[in-house]
Amino acid sequence: MNKTKSGQVVLNAPYLLWSAIFIVVPLLFVVYYAFTTANGSFTFNNIINFFTNEQYMTVFWRSMLYAVWATVISLVIAYPFSYCMSKVNASSQRMLMLLVMLPMLMNLVVRTYSWQQILEKNGLVNTLLESIGLEPIQFLGNAGVIIFGMVYNYLPFMILPIYSSISKVDKSLLEASNDLGCNTFGTIQKVILPLSIPGVLSGITMVFVPCVSTFYISRQFSDGNIKMIGDVIEDKFYRSSVPDYNIGATISLVLMLIILISLAVVNKFSDDDDQTGGVVI
């Protein structure tokens, strides 16, 4: 008994150490900077400044709004797609899965940069339009294209958990529903949808969380004109000429709390019925 216990400690030690150094310590730094001034004395001013600064607030609510839009659009695309994907034969399912995963094999920076090249003023699409005698279109620099960028990047995180929970629904339940008088639409509504809620909730979290803290996509797609909260944090830490770790850490801390709250809300929903089938994050 004792032996196995000490053995466990030895085995766990590297992971505990790793977590401590690379997760807990940085977190403590964030908290430290958030509650101190530039010369290291304790203060609440950073938090107060953040919430009373109109510029920060605009950026903050913009991030929330874009993230909600991106999540909703991803869900609307992903659910029917996942349903259809679960209906086709096994080899087509594998093929579709591969296509969904394919963009994820590329780095986000490379993906986003490629899209910027495709959509910019003298980019691929506009060159094509001009070659057939049409006016070029200004794609970049608006909210729509940034939300598109987020949907494009994070859609797989919505599809995978939903697909996994839909395909786990026992086929005999669908037959039972059919047998009891439900047509296909009724079966989706009364059986598949309620049973795939855990997948939908994981999908929502897995898309909303990275969206709300997005940076880079917004900068690339708007030439730095539309900022999201992630861009502001990046600026504060190392892009601006005078780095301000304290306000950067404050915004990070607020963002983390928002994410924790949204996770808690989602978990509350999925607690109501402890169906397995979703991806737990």
Partner: peptide, 20 residues
């Protein structure tokens, strides 16, 4: 005639009760 329009009901081997 599709199953949902047949006046026939089934008891499945593993019951297929709705878990939700």
């Amino acid at each position: 005639v599709p199953p949902h329009k047949r006046n026939i009901n089934t008891i499945f081997q593993r019951y297929a009760l709705f878990p939700h």
